[in-house]
Design a protein around this nucleic acid. Structure first.
Ligand SMILES: [Mn+2]
Ligand SMILES: [Mn+2]
Ligand SMILES: [Zn+2]
Ligand SMILES: [Zn+2]
Lengths: 140, 140
DNA sequence: TTTCTAATTTTCAATAGTTGCTAATTAGCA
DNA sequence: TGCTAATTAGCAACTATTGAAAATTAGAAA
């Protein structure tokens, strides 16, 4: 996603208002590689702006998603996660600590066994143990 | 998953009872490649057994899943889907009609950009238009 | 065949995640 | 400074799923 400053301009140009709530979320999402849930963002946002509503967090995330500034991903952890990295990439989820990491692949794997399906997109979710957690597992 | 007959034996051997509700679900799931949701199975089950409860459907699906007879998959369509095909395969979801198809890949793609992550499993979800829907799209 | 009991089913309440609705508030322009 | 359309907050509603407990029943034992 673009920087908070650039988003401010883009929002105004689109006839959208730049509220303190939105600016806060712009900042919380920028360069955020944690793939946070709406609720996780709400928790952090509340520290800096007590009274912000979860509804506003969802609304802003949905707005940013439909503008293509962020993407919503589902890695099977129950709730949607939001990702300011909209480049073509995939995810690795740690079964132990739940961390979600960005990963890249050389080429999208060719699929077999289905004729005539027009592929628009391929998403890979790797599951396993992250470096930290598999390190800890070794020591036991 | 195994056949309804084999499951009947396996359940009894495990000290589990073989109820009409379970037998019905064994039949509805056997060779079912539709990747149905719990609710979809409940609808079909209700036709043959009015009064069966959705709770029982969920319960039986969870039991079969923990026994490894079926798998629960999440392709981002909101609810879990259940799959009697427990072989190593992936899925293609049609954005138009929502159909979920089995697909296979030659080799799981090597992931880059993350050191020390111990991969236990890789799942690919392809999205796009199925043969039927892309056919229809052509004719317009 | 009848009895017994642990397993199962049903019912309904509860939960998590998310969206719909609307009154109150406010950003940004005139 | 005032105006108004956009936004927010609050809360109800909704979907998917599970928890809890009373009622029922499969299957073994008598
Ligand atoms: Mn990512
Ligand atoms: Mn499948
Ligand atoms: Zn971890
Ligand atoms: Zn289709």
């Amino acid at each position: 996603m673009r920087s908070p400053e650039e988003l401010t301009i883009a929002f105004r140009e689109a006839g959208l208002k730049v509220t303190p709530q939105r600016q806060l979320l712009f900042r919380l999402l920028h360069n955020n590689c944690a793939h946070p849930t709406a609720d996780a963002l709400y928790s952090v946002a509340t520290e800096q702006m007590p009274g912000i509503s979860l509804r506003t967090v969802y609304q802003t995330l949905n707005d940013l998603t439909s503008m293509g500034e962020i993407q919503s991903i589902d890695v099977g952890t129950g709730s949607s996660r939001f990702d300011p990295n909209v480049s073509d990439h995939h995810h690795a989820v740690c079964d132990e600590c739940g961390a979600v990491h960005d990963v890249y692949v050389n080429q999208a794997p060719e699929m077999r066994g289905l004729n005539g399906f027009a592929v628009a997109d391929a998403r890979i979710v790797y599951r396993g143990l992250c470096a930290t957690c598999s390190e800890l597992a070794q020591h036991r």
